[in-house]
């Protein structure tokens, strides 16, 4: 079976999503939650694999682990997404759930940031998104 063609979709302008904020975008009809953490962007399927919570409404938190009862070790600040409904945690880099990483995951998508000038060289899908060469843009790659 031949691989589906990978397409890149412009979904946001850099600066548009505030730090630790999110934006719900649609690519090929699929709702995707796009997050901005410390200059990096992450995209995962917006539908929580548990029971359909809209992940773009979730809260970004650190990864809390512990080597010893009573000790709370926080790493990877704001890289875990807590579902807005039942609070399951998902790694925004991989979409994997914390409690059951192998079988419960939100699909994650590759994200790149490109200058408007670069985009002018194409190929990309801007859909309804106007692109200017002075700005930078967030792109999601999808098969």
């Amino acid at each position: 079976m031949s691989a589906a063609v990978m397409t890149r979709h412009v979904v946001a302008k850099v600066g548009e999503i505030p730090e630790k904020g999110s934006k719900l975008v649609k690519v090929k009809g699929r709702p995707i939650a796009l997050f901005h953490v410390d200059g990096e962007y992450f995209a995962i399927s917006n539908t929580c694999p548990h029971a359909g919570g809209s992940l773009c409404h979730g809260k970004l938190i650190g990864l809390i682990r512990s080597s010893e009862p009573g000790v709370y070790e926080r790493t990877r600040p704001f890289e875990m997404l807590q579902c807005p409904w039942h609070g399951w945690e998902f790694d925004i880099r991989t979409g994997q759930s914390y409690c059951d990483p192998d079988s419960i995951k939100a699909r994650s998508y590759a994200v790149t940031v490109k200058d408007g000038a670069e985009l002018a060289e194409g190929p990309f899908v801007a859909e309804t998104f106007p692109v200017s060469i002075e700005d930078q843009y967030v792109l999601i790659e999808m098969k």
Partner: peptide, 16 residues
């Protein structure tokens, strides 16, 4: 079910 939602309150509990 509660552990999946609240395990961050008791992070030393690393199994259900």
């Amino acid at each position: 079910k509660m552990w999946r939602g609240m395990r961050k309150e008791i992070p030393w509990v690393d199994a259900s």
